[in-house]
């Protein structure tokens, strides 16, 4: 259950492109054609799925305050978290380079379609962003970290696929000349991001509310009513805003 929740949350609600605006540069630069967008998107999913769990392990067993305790109790006070940026980035760059070498050797066909994108990925801030969010959101287990990595990757993939499809179509439209290309892409992305904001409504309650069920029934019912009312009003507000 936890996995499914995190998975969908990272695809839709916390979408890398539309909610956190990470990985924008390659998103805008490599979205002229659907086929190349698919290639880059697949590579991002793959790299995120590998680097987030690896960085999770690094964070858990090396970087966190007290993480070195497995070396012996005298190491309990070490706090290496100031190294996390460097170590995360090094992992990502190394992983990307490793993946490139392995894919080239064992799957030349895949390499031919993916290969040119791999170096681009090392500088894609969505990748480092994934690892940093994993750290700051205190994701609890290795399994969840993997789920989070894959989910975020798929979210990014969806976003670039959608914008590439739109850009292929938009070529047939009569866009004002100065807006052609980059300008209209920015505006379309903005509108898509507004659309994705509606997924925010998927987030309800969470653990805190679930625990409260043990409390008296009456309190719970009253609270649910209040919550439902609040949600309804929120929805009304949101639609109003969008209409405006």
């Amino acid at each position: 259950m936890e996995h499914i929740e995190l998975f969908f949350k990272s695809i839709f609600i916390d979408n890398m492109v539309f909610a956190t605006f990470l990985g924008m540069c390659s998103y805008l630069a490599v979205s002229k054609k659907v086929s190349t967008a698919v290639g880059l998107g697949a590579a991002v999913i793959f790299v995120l799925a590998v680097t987030v769990p690896v960085n999770w392990l690094l964070d858990q067993y090396i970087l966190k305050e007290g993480a070195l305790v497995w070396l012996g109790p005298e190491y309990a006070d070490y706090d290496l978290s100031f190294l996390s940026f460097i170590l995360f980035i090094a992992t990502i760059a190394t992983m990307v380079q490793l993946v490139e070498i392995i894919v080239e050797k064992f799957a030349p066909a895949l390499y031919n379609s993916l290969g040119i994108f791999l170096p681009l990925i090392a500088v894609n801030c969505a990748i480092l962003g994934g690892s940093l969010f994993m750290q700051s959101r205190e994701i609890a287990t290795l399994g969840l970290a993997t789920t989070y990595g894959i989910g975020s990757g798929i979210g990014w993939f969806l976003a670039i696929l959608a914008i590439a499809a739109i850009r292929e179509k938009i070529r047939y439209s009569n866009v004002p000349a100065p807006l052609r290309g980059l300008g209209i892409t920015f505006i379309v992305t903005g509108l898509m991001a507004i659309g994705f904001m509606s997924f925010g409504g998927m987030l309800t309650g969470g653990d805190e509310e679930a625990k409260d069920t043990s409390k008296t029934e009456a309190v719970k019912v009253a609270k649910d009513d209040a919550k439902a009312k609040k949600e309804k009003e929120e929805l009304a507000n949101n639609t109003k805003e969008i209409k405006e």
């Binding site: 605006f21 100065p178 807006l179 505006i187 903005g190 991001a193």
Partner: peptide, 23 residues
């Protein structure tokens, strides 16, 4: 944040209107 995208889009529009060579 979506409005930031749209504002940048508008800046691009203004800039390229002033300098058509960039279109």
């Amino acid at each position: 944040a979506p409005m930031a995208l749209i504002v940048v889009g508008i800046i691009i529009w203004v800039q390229r209107t002033k300098n058509p060579a960039l279109v």
